[in-house]
Design a protein around this nucleic acid. Structure first.
Lengths: 230, 230, 230, 230
DNA sequence: AATGAATGAGCTTTCATTCAT
DNA sequence: GATGAATGAAAGCTCATTCAT
């Protein structure tokens, strides 16, 4: 690769590379959006993204005229990562271990990034690229699922979409740092998915305390990360 | 009880009874809030509650200066209903059936009322009374749980709070009318909670289709039930 | 009329009278809008109207959710005035004098209020009421026109709409205070409208000077060729 | 003329010739501006001019630091065309026919080019060169006018500026393709300008319909009452 | 005590102009 | 000299909350 070839993702659809500074800003904006979307969800204001990126709002709009464009650009690579992980899991010699790995990881990945779970589950965000991204995930999960079913380890009546829905749902538990909590329910889910079981898999972490009840993710208003309660 | 004596719950903390019309409005507001919170969640605008109640916004604010006051007043009786149901379930001669009944019902109750699941799980809503309400649920569930554990049917490493969290989480799936979808995951959960199992309990409903992925409850902005996407 | 009967124009369509202060603000807003529209045209920002009225923007939006509502409310009475004037002119015993009077007055009325000429000529502003208002003017002018034609004074090949267009066009000349200038062209128009003429009617005012060339009203904004009307 | 000597009008005031490519861009920009100003008027965004020219906005600003500079450069030759046409009209053996020709043509020329009528009438656009251009038109029209007046055909009380103003005003009627409509009013104007008349000149076109009322050119932008001239 | 009008900050989006590359 | 990305002010509109009536 010669030095004049720009990195692949710096190339816009028309094939024109971005100017150096523009590319720098594009990355700043994507980084900011990643962070802000992860914390606040996809409804976050462009103002905040711009502020975090250290650029003017206009710059964000120039580069990403609508929210879907930004979501598209941002999550394509995250979806790639998901696909890669499913495929890796499908390559695990132990079909059950592969499934467990993917569910465990998928819940954490979505918990770490509220935007990602919205992209994967909400119908409305992102454009064609995202839709195509989603479309790539499902067959990959389907492979994982049938492999485990063929091996007689995974119950026959679940589909790949059941896995997707269950995974996305469990990711709503707790904040980014509560993997310990979420993994208890992942364990329960996996025990429920197994064809048969003699003993329960031990639940990781410690039993929740009262305050943990408050950890379901917020139906998120615009302004802040928690309820405003006056 | 003379006609000027208001019912007990119309008495404010200072002990002063409300004027007759004020009491009527209070009830209208609570009824409206119950309906609106159920549909929109606890972030619903006071404007809408007032409109549904047929009173002015000001009246709502006068009676319930902050959202927590309204939530407190509103959900106390709903929490009573939850407690009643747990206790009924605990009275079931079959400990496992009792547990299943409560989980199934609890998921639907919270799905039918977004406000309820927020009250039960979100830290920020409601005041002392709600906290006390939550505190009454937990021991009741604990009874249900230990009974099933003592009978060797429920795995020993789950606590009553695990049940509460799992229940609230599953209620986030689908809209009010998607009990069919939610109950698939309730079934998985219960299969996961069992100490041991030879065969999976059959999943109810039909496998989800692609569009069902979009059914995770929205991090809900005010305006509508889905993302606005331009 | 008893003292509790509110003034007619304080009654909204549903028949509910406005509260006293709301009615006061409504009048302030209409007065402000009248002034601002007259100076700036119908594109004027709601912000400015609010500032001039001494109220918050929100108040303007509450009372007049879209520009058309404001235009409707504002220009209905101005259109009434136009109709009244046409009818008065049609009652003039001298059909030609009546026509001259209306044209002269009409040009000045529109010159004094840029909003009025936009309402009368631009397709997009205002709603049904304005459309109905326009519809009332045309037949009245038609009466004026046929009377003068029947008397053999007005050329037979002009229609009432020709008069409307010519009038609106001449109102674009000069600012509010340049009636002297406009009336020169009104005189030319009327001389052109007469069936026959031996001598020209003397042009009023003094011949324009170079600077007067700059007096044609301001041209269009970027967006398009017609009003945007939301 | 050697190949390095640029054409005369490529020489900036300081006398420095432009580089070959700079000169090419200058012409592209002028051509683009001519088209864009004609369609949108002189307020058109530099962005659009740049896009049409196929150059960057920065290039437009470098070459024409303010709008007036561009207007100056652009309309000088259009003004030459106006002067030429007036002079041709003045050479018509029939003084009245000459006047009619010029008025008719002038209205259409300005209607076809919104920028032109703004340059001719709006005070704020263009600089000295434009002022000098305007100054050349007036005497030429004065010749046309006095010839017709001397011949006893044109009323004595109009001045050349009256003609200019009337012409510019009528050009505001209708869009570029509505010559039919405009010429009705041109006819009225000319009938009004004649010293005496036995019968009206027939109005061309067909009487306007309701929708034609909406054809007056668009009113002012928000910012102020006059052109912004930077 | 009830009312609902008023507020005004906040988010969205656009665009004329400047300036780093 | 050319470029077009960046800027940031401005305007549109909404809504939770307050307060005059």
């Amino acid at each position: 690769m010669s030095s004049v070839t720009p990195p692949l993702d710096a190339v816009v659809d028309e094939g024109r590379p971005l100017r150096r500074d523009a590319e720098r800003n594009r990355r700043l904006i994507l980084a900011a959006a990643r962070q802000v979307f992860a914390q606040r969800g996809l409804h976050a204001g462009f103002d905040e993204i711009a502020r975090v990126a250290g650029v003017g709002v206009g710059t964000v709009y120039r580069r990403f005229p609508d929210r879907g464009d930004l979501v598209d650009a941002l999550f394509e690579e995250e979806i790639d990562a998901v696909v890669a992980r499913v495929e890796a899991a499908a390559a695990d010699p132990d079909p059950w271990a592969g499934l467990c790995d993917f569910v465990t990881w998928g819940v954490e990945a979505q918990a770490a990034d509220r935007g990602l779970s919205q992209v994967l589950t909400a119908g409305g965000y992102g454009h064609d690229r995202i839709a195509r991204g989603r479309a790539r995930i499902e067959p990959a999960v389907a492979v994982l699922v049938s492999r485990a079913q063929s091996a007689g380890l995974l119950r026959a009546d679940v589909s790949s979409l059941d896995i997707a829905i269950a995974t996305a749902t469990l990711s709503q538990i707790g904040g980014p740092d509560r993997a310990d909590l979420r993994q208890r329910y992942v364990t329960l889910l996996l025990d429920g998915l197994a064809v048969s079981r003699d003993t329960p898999s031990p639940l990781p972490g410690v039993p929740p305390v009262d305050a943990d009840l408050a950890c379901l993710v917020e139906p998120a208003r615009r302004g802040g990360s928690g309820p405003a309660e006056g």
